[in-house]
Design a protein around this nucleic acid. Sequence first.
RNA 1: GCGAAAGUGGCGGAAUUGGUAGACGCGCUGGACUUAGGAUCCAGUGGCCGAAAGGCCAUAGGGGUUCGAUUCCCCUCUUUCGCACCA
Length: 836
Amino acid sequence: MIMEKKQQDQKRAGDGFYPFREIEPRWQQRWEEQELYKTNPEPKNKFYILVMFAYPSGDIHMGHFRNYSVGDAVARRRMMEGYDILHPFGWDAFGLPAEQAAIKRNLHPEEWTLHNIEVSRNTLKKVGISFDWDREVATCLPDYYKFTQWFFVQLFKKGLAYQKEATVNWCEYCNTVLANEQVDAEGRCWRCEHTVTKRKLKQWFFKITEYAERLLNDLDKLTGWPENVKTMQKNWIGKSVGAEIDFKLESGEKIPVFTTRPDTIFGVTFMAIAPEAEILDKLEIPAEYKKDVDDYIQKAINKSEIERTAETGEKDGVFTGCYAINPYNSEKVQLWVADYVLATYGTGVVMAVPAHDQRDFMFAKKYGIPIKIVIHPEGGSLNLDEMTEAYVDYGVMVNSGEFDGLVGRDAVEKLTEYAQKHGFGRKKVNYRLRDWLISRQRYWGAPIPVIHCENCGPVPVPEDDLPVELPKNVENYIPKGRSPLADIPEFMNAKCPKCGAEARRDPDTMDTFVCSSWYHMRYVDNKNPDQPFSRAEAEKWMPVDQYIGGIEHATGHLLYFRFFTKFMYDLGWLNVDEPALKLFNHGMVRDAESRIMSKSLGNVVSPMELIDRYGVDISRLAMHFIAPADKEIDWNEEAFVGIERFVNRFYRMVKEADNPRPVNLKRYFKKDELSENQWDLYIKLNQMIKKVSEDGERMQFNTNIAALMEYFNALNQVKRIEPNFYQYILQKSAQLIAPLAPHFAEEIWSMFGYRESIFKSSWPSYDPNAVVCEQINIVVQVNGKVREQILIDSDASQDLIEKMAMESEKVGKFIEEKTIIKIIHVPGKLINIVAK
RNA sequence: GCGAAAGUGGCGGAAUUGGUAGACGCGCUGGACUUAGGAUCCAGUGGCCGAAAGGCCAUAGGGGUUCGAUUCCCCUCUUUCGCACCA
């Protein structure tokens, strides 16, 4: 097996094979010398292409390879179209694995990370992606995180960064706090897969909810974003419109509740409070209930996320012995504590209407709480004894005093107005989106630039004192439930910037999603020592014209990315309020059995291994050819065979071409300059150019390659081609394949005697006078079934086509003894005779 | 459960606004050239009937709209993805 592979590989190095081993490194070196990818500092016609940057693990995997190959194809195509390209790359370099490596290998996280960056960068260079490495950023370097901290300070100043005691997801194993999106559906940590529990900690949050409405509304502006991403964001933000109604305790204390259905308010028979809700402290729970309630709360809080959500359907709770008063009818309703109520949504209290909410219905049934019907379906009625589930649709209000007879949304409006008028309620919008918890009790992150002073409270570090540098002398990184920074007195002790008193730094670091929320802005001016970027540079390059990355960031990174951009717009730093015009999500690469590639499964295919065996370009082409870029791939190497044949054939054709030399590619041909066969090839060439251009625009690189193959098949059929025209064809073809196979294209380009890079040449345009053949095939249908084809001049009149169709023998067979009802013409394509 | 996307030959996939379903590639079959071929070239390749000409069927299944549906609408099934007690 191994022998076979080796023999094959040797063959690949032999005659008639495209010698990638020699060619690819040579062009990579020349491109570097020529500074081909250097960003024009004064772009006239800018195009900002951004691929999601990478965590430097020292390795690149198939997902990266696909991502950057797609990005590179776009960049190079635009380059040939004359755009000034910004195509940067960088490193999302903070994060957990560096600490784990530090623990395991006894290396400093920084040393390990910087080393990995070095390795990863060199690897990527071998892939020949057209990154401008002068624009590189690494989030773990002080010249970058200085401004990550700057963002924190700006947010703080605007009241958008705040601290609060919060029940947080806690991973025992990683010993750290996790954001909601870092906990999977089964309640496990996204990194270590251990079960997540709860803890109360004082944490920093960014008030992204303040931007919820804009993040939602502006989705409409994102016409270049895939619908599924926009839908996911919309659902994630989860806007719901309703009312906040103040119920009252017997003591007179208000309990506001959020509801989307004020029209059901006369059906409230109890209220349910989240175990973590603060309002519980205000209840005067009668002694005989006290113990049960406390036990229940303790149990509920200690339950893991899974336990609390797993048993879908079964709900439990405990009666507090307390009552609240419904402000609409002064009825007394029971107050329960129930863990199906979320403390973090609305006010943490639900007005329960068992007749018209399924959860409340089940709860009431279980505990024998009264159920009161207050909505009837329009034109129907409900009967309590027959109800097996809640009636949750809108309908006609009943048993609701003066409001009886009101219907649906109108009822909602009226009830809300009533509450507003009487001062016990108001219109209210709630979002599923929560504020963004950014504190991490870890070492390897950007320190939170805050000094805690006993007199002044939390004070942001003055901008001139940034960055707050990560101290290097950390004893150990083993997580122990608080940041390792807390144990470094030289770091922790500081003077209050406001009053000068002895104070202590915040020991936590920021979530790495903060670092990656603004890297697209840093690229435009990555060496600026004083500002995150200059307004002038941002004006030149922002927004990103095309953003490319995986779908997994749909509701995390891509939301934060938009949030930070809007924030900078509000501060006047940007004149755009959305970061990227177009977004493209490439599909995943999985193994042949549709499983995700992972080290533990041992099914990882390394792109570097492919590159070693087949070369970069064949690997890229094969990857593109297998499936359209947005589709997932179940990995197999079958496509390589066809691609390899095609590339070698192309290479041989160039090698064997007579008297190779640059020909005038700007010119178009006229019919009388070429033989009939060649004129036909010329038309096909122009059709292909059109197709490749259009498909490439839609990121359809698979059909792009197919079009070239198809054309070469046609080319092969024609025996005699005049050398000048033949080279015209091959050179245009080289240009068309250049974005997908840059080294190969560059090599054959130079074989034709070009001195300048193919990427400095102009993307082929098609001859508009030569995309339609003189003779076209018209399909003749009878009653929608194809019966005949007519080859006819493309400018033939409809009458003539009709005449020929009717005279056709085959058609005759199907219309004899029938009456022709009508004839439908589709110009240039088809004629359909409808006969009965 | 809710939301979204998808389902096409033996396989990966084409078909841009409804207009020849299966481009291109793999694989397979036959042939040419060869000492040899896993190189290269040529031809064939959805199913059924037929010697052929040709015909019929076929884009998950069922219905509908239309002269015409892989494409639009409704129902069912399956798969993938996202959210999962959001009041």
